[in-house]
């Protein structure tokens, strides 16, 4: 992946930066330039919480080429207390024991680890809350 693509998304992927519409309060992740609820164009930066609840998930057994070494792996959508939802991999888990509603903690991990020459990409993955 060309470095500029990774670099540009760092605020969202590294620090979980989202934006709140200054007029209606709707939260966007990733941030947007116009609010789809009220049409306002000014936003305030917020950071997403470190925990969410699992809304749905699957176990990918036939991945795209850049994830072939990692299969099978779980991926899911979590919902934060502020109502926002986010997709990410679920790691450090027993694939057979995942359940909708499970509490998940976000951890900073490497994503797309397949090559040995490109720029590394990092983002948050979900880990079932265990402490």
């Amino acid at each position: 992946m060309f470095p500029s693509r990774i670099w540009r998304e760092m605020p969202q992927r590294y620090r979980l930066e989202a934006s709140t519409c200054k007029k209606c309060g709707k939260i966007f992740y990733p941030p947007r330039l116009i609010c789809d609820k009220c049409g306002y164009r000014k936003f305030e930066k917020i950071n997403l919480p470190e925990e969410g609840k699992l809304k749905t998930f699957t176990v990918i057994r036939t991945p795209a080429s850049q994830f072939s070494d990692e299969a099978p792996y779980a991926i899911g959508i979590i919902r934060f207390s502020n109502g926002l939802q986010m997709m990410g991999q679920i790691v450090d888990c027993d694939l057979e024991k995942l359940k909708i509603g499970q509490a998940m903690r976000l951890e900073f991990r490497r994503v797309q680890t397949h090559d040995t020459h490109g720029v590394l990409s990092y983002a948050h993955k979900f880990v079932p809350k265990w402490y």
Partner: peptide, 30 residues
């Protein structure tokens, strides 16, 4: 799988390793 995944959100879905069967599987699961 890679080519088909171009129809999903590259930066916030495909980046994390989702595939099309994966997206519909998540819909099915819920």
């Amino acid at each position: 799988t890679y080519a088909l995944a171009a129809a999903a959100d590259q930066e916030y879905e495909v980046f994390h390793g989702v595939t099309f069967p994966g997206l519909y599987a998540m819909m099915a699961c819920a």
